[in-house]
Design a protein around this nucleic acid. Structure first.
Lengths: 248, 248
DNA sequence: CGTTACGTTGACTCCCGTCAAGATCCGTGG
DNA sequence: CCACGGATCTTGACGGGAGTCAACGTAACG
C-alpha cells in the first residue's frame, strides 16, 4: 500500500522548534502533556495533497517545517491560493466537519496533527488554547486583508515585487542575515504557485521576472535562485511605499 | 460643537436585536450585566468615518443596525474594501493598540461600543466571549478567502453578478421572502463602494450594470432599486455554478 | 434654479490573458 | 553515458477586457 503521507518520528513538545509560536505556545506543562497524548506527526512530499475541499476533516494541526498552501477553485478550474502555511501556522478549524479548501504541500512538510474531536474538547476546556487560536486567527485575517488589497488593486509588477520582498524578508529573518546588503534566497514555490498566490497567469509571472532581471532589480540563477542587489529598489516597485522623490 | 457621531438611546441587552448572533450571544445573564456596565451606543450617518487607519483604537463593538466598511489603501490612493460589516458583526481587535484600516459608515449605522481596555479584561476572564469571538473571526476568515478568490480570479461580470446575488439573498433572508420569484431590493451601497468591494473602477461597474439591464438579467429603477426577474439566470453569471447545459 | 455629488456613456489605451512554440531542467532507463 | 519524455519555464504574437480620461446626464438639496 502507498499512503500519500508518512508518519515521522515523535518529538517531545519541549524540544519542538515551534514551541513558542504555535497554537500551543501559551500552554503550561500540564496542557502540553495533554496535547502530547493526542498528537502525532505526518509528513508529505512537495506537491502532495494533504486535504481536499469537501473532505471530512479528521485532524487539525500545526505546520512544523516546510510549507503548504490553501486554495479555492471555481468549477471551471480557475484556482486562487488563499493561504500560505509556514512553520507554526495552524491548519484546520475546530467545530467544523468538513474542509473548505484544498490543502497542498508545496515543499516537504511536517505536520503536528491532533485528532479533531479531542482537540475540540481541549479548546473548550483550556482557555489558553482558545485564546492563542483567536490571536493567530486575527493575525491571519489581517494577512488575508492585505492580500485582498494586493489582489484587487495592485498591478502585476507590484504583485511580483511584493511577493519577492516578502519571501526575501522571511528568509533573512530565518537566517538572521541583515537585510541591508545583497540578499540571496531560494523561492520556495513554482511559477504556478506564484501565479495562484498573486492572481496572475504563469506567463505573466514569467515575463515580469524576466523584466525585473533585465532591469537589474533581481538576479536569477536558475528559476528559483534569486538575489536582490538593492532591497530599496525592489521595495520601490511594490506600490506600498510613498515615493519620496516623486514630482507632484 | 458638531461631533462626527451622536450617542443613541440605551437598549437593554435582553431587548437587543442582535442578542443571539453578536459577540455576546453566548453570554449568560451575569456576563451580560457586566457588558452592560461598559457598553454605550453611537450612531454615524451614511458616509461618515468611524475610525482611521493608524488611530488609537479607543473602543471595539458590534454593529447593531446599518452597515459599515473596512478598507485599506495604497499610498497613491487606490482603495480596496476588505470588510463589509453588517448587524451583529464585530469591529475592532482586542489586544491591539491601533486601528489598521479605515472604518466608514455606508448607511446610517448604530454601534454597541465597549471601551477597549475593560473589554479586553472581560475577554481574558470570560471564556464565553473569547470562544464566540474565535468563531466569528473564523467565519470572517472564510468570507475573506472567498473574497480573495473573487478578487484574484473572477471577471468584472462575475464579480458584479456575485455581489448582486449576495445582497439580494441577504435582503430576502431579512424579509423572509422566498427567493423563487421576482426579487426586488435596494443596493445598500454606491457605485464607488461596489467598485471598492470588487476591485474594479466605477466606470466598469456602471457599464456592467447597464449591460445586465440591457440583457434583461436585472431591472433598474434609479441606480439602487434593483429587481431580479430570474435568480437562476443571475447565478449562472457568477462563475460559481457548474454549467449543466454546457457543451463539453 | 444653480450647485454639487453621483452615475452613465464614449473613445481610446494598455495591461494582462490566451494560444502556441521553444527552451531548459530533471529523472529514468536502455 | 546518453537518449528520451515529461514537467516546468520562457518567449512571442495577438486580442480583449478593464482602466483612463473626458463629457454628459441625473438626482438631491439648499
Amino acid at each position: 500500500m502507498s499512503l500519500s503521507h508518512s508518519s515521522a518520528e515523535f518529538t517531545p513538545c519541549a524540544d519542538c522548534n515551534i514551541r513558542y509560536r504555535a497554537v500551543c505556545s501559551t500552554c503550561d506543562n500540564d496542557e502540553l502533556a495533554q496535547l502530547e497524548e493526542i498528537k502525532y506527526y505526518r509528513t508529505y512530499d512537495a506537491g502532495q495533497p494533504i486535504m481536499f475541499e469537501g473532505d471530512e476533516m479528521h485532524f487539525v494541526g500545526s505546520v512544523v517545517s516546510g510549507a503548504a498552501t490553501l486554495s479555492r477553485s471555481l468549477p471551471d478550474g480557475r484556482v486562487q491560493m488563499v493561504g500560505l502555511m509556514l512553520p507554526s501556522d495552524f491548519i484546520g478549524r475546530p467545530n467544523r466537519e468538513t474542509v473548505d479548501f484544498d490543502v497542498t504541500a508545496i515543499q516537504k512538510v511536517t505536520l503536528c496533527c491532533f485528532r479533531r474531536k479531542p482537540f475540540e474538547a481541549m479548546v473548550a476546556s483550556t482557555p489558553h488554547i482558545g485564546q492563542r487560536l483567536l490571536e493567530m486567527t486575527l493575525d491571519e485575517l489581517d494577512v488575508a486583508r492585505d492580500w485582498m488589497l494586493l489582489l484587487g488593486r495592485k498591478t502585476a509588477r507590484e504583485k511580483i515585487t511584493f511577493l519577492l520582498a516578502l519571501i526575501a524578508r522571511r528568509t533573512a529573518d530565518l537566517h538572521m542575515t541583515k537585510v541591508s546588503e545583497e540578499l540571496p534566497f531560494e523561492m520556495p514555490m513554482s511559477r504556478e504557485a506564484m501565479a495562484n498566490y498573486l492572481g496572475l497567469t504563469i506567463e505573466t509571472v514569467s515575463r515580469q521576472m524576466t523584466a525585473l532581471r533585465k532591469e537589474g532589480i533581481i538576479t536569477l540563477a536558475g528559476s528559483r535562485e534569486i538575489t536582490i542587489p538593492d532591497m530599496a529598489r525592489l521595495k520601490a516597485e511594490t506600490g506600498d511605499e510613498v515615493q519620496v522623490g516623486a514630482l507632484n
